[in-house]
């Protein structure tokens, strides 16, 4: 090695590659081994159907209504519930941001997220069931003369996703809403903007990128509705979502190839929705939401 010019280590360091950078390696390798490799393996497996053709699984999926209808069933539950969650979360987050003691409310709302869909489904079966407090209250108030049938159907799954999904959407929205510098609203007010104009001109454009992310993350949650679709839904029929189809193919028919194909289709459909939303996001402003500082 000559003594002129930088050494190899120095040149690598200049490009940002040194001992510290190597710390990402174990993490990256783990994700490649546990996420990328299985995914690629699944992709490969999906083209090895039992009938020996290449596209057999995909042919079958899009030919059999029993299978392809699950896409529609899944979207019919997950998209409305995500939109409703967002529509509820935004106005409520705007109210809550003015509260001094938000912590109690946010703590209560974090409960269903941490307890998870299985427990919520278990609770719903009883609470919304014919003997449950909800039905009793509805009847006692004279709103209905018989117990409402909520569980074991579309609305059971819908409600379950609302109960676990709304707090998630709300807390995410709240973190975006409170991230907006309050002086911006005050500035708009001094310039003559009323509440509606402040929302339209200041908050909405600043929030849209965050709301797009919130929509995507909430949608991902609602999209894989496996436990609630089985427990509080009608898994053979109206709530036979795509994850049930994949699960049944893998663990009831032991057709891993078809199961992988369904999982790939599931991922592709979800990706299309997320990409559409994120694509729309790039059309709006994406910079900092705090006031610009010098």
């Amino acid at each position: 090695m000559t003594d002129r010019g930088p050494t190899l280590t120095q040149r690598l360091r200049a490009r940002g590659l040194d001992g510290v950078t190597l710390l990402v390696l174990p993490c990256v390798l783990a994700i490649i081994a546990l996420f990328i490799y299985p995914f690629l393996y699944g992709l490969w497996l999906s083209f090895q159907p039992k009938d020996g053709t290449t596209m057999g699984n995909y042919d079958r999926f899009f030919r059999e209504p029993f299978l392809y209808k699950t896409i529609w069933t899944t979207l019919k539950i997950s998209i409305p519930v995500t939109i409703l969650n967002l529509l509820l979360a935004v106005p409520i987050a705007f109210r809550v941001r003015l509260m001094k003691h938000q912590r109690l409310l946010t703590t209560i709302l974090v409960l269903p997220i941490t307890l998870g869909t299985v427990l919520v489904a278990e609770g719903m079966l009883f609470y919304f069931g014919p003997q449950g407090w909800f039905s009793r209250t509805v009847m006692a108030l004279g709103l209905m003369d018989h117990a409402p049938s909520i569980t074991h159907g579309y609305w059971g799954v819908f409600l379950s996703l609302l109960i676990t999904g709304f707090p998630f959407t709300f807390l995410l929205t709240l973190s975006y809403v409170t991230g907006i510098e309050p002086a911006l609203e005050q500035a708009a007010a001094t310039l003559g903007a009323g509440p509606a104009a402040r929302f339209r001109e200041i908050f909405l454009p600043l929030l849209l990128p965050g709301l797009a992310i919130t929509f995507c993350l909430s949608f991902v949650q609602a999209y894989s509705v496996l436990p609630s679709a089985i427990l509080v839904g009608d898994p053979a029929n109206t709530t036979r979502v795509i994850s049930i189809a994949a699960y049944q193919a893998a663990f009831e028919d032991y057709d891993y190839s078809l199961a992988s194909a369904i999982a790939m289709i599931m991922g592709a459909v979800q990706l299309v929705v997320v990409a559409a939303i994120l694509g729309a996001r790039t059309l709006v402003y994406r910079g900092p939401v705090a006031a610009a500082k010098g």
């Binding site: 510098e181 500035a187 001094t190």
Partner: peptide
């Protein structure tokens, strides 16, 4: 009266320029 109806001009400490 509400702020938006007073019609005063205000310069804020951090300027509060609308970043978008």
């Amino acid at each position: 009266i509400r702020t938006e109806e007073r019609g005063f001009g205000m310069v804020f400490q951090n300027y509060a320029l609308f970043p978008h």
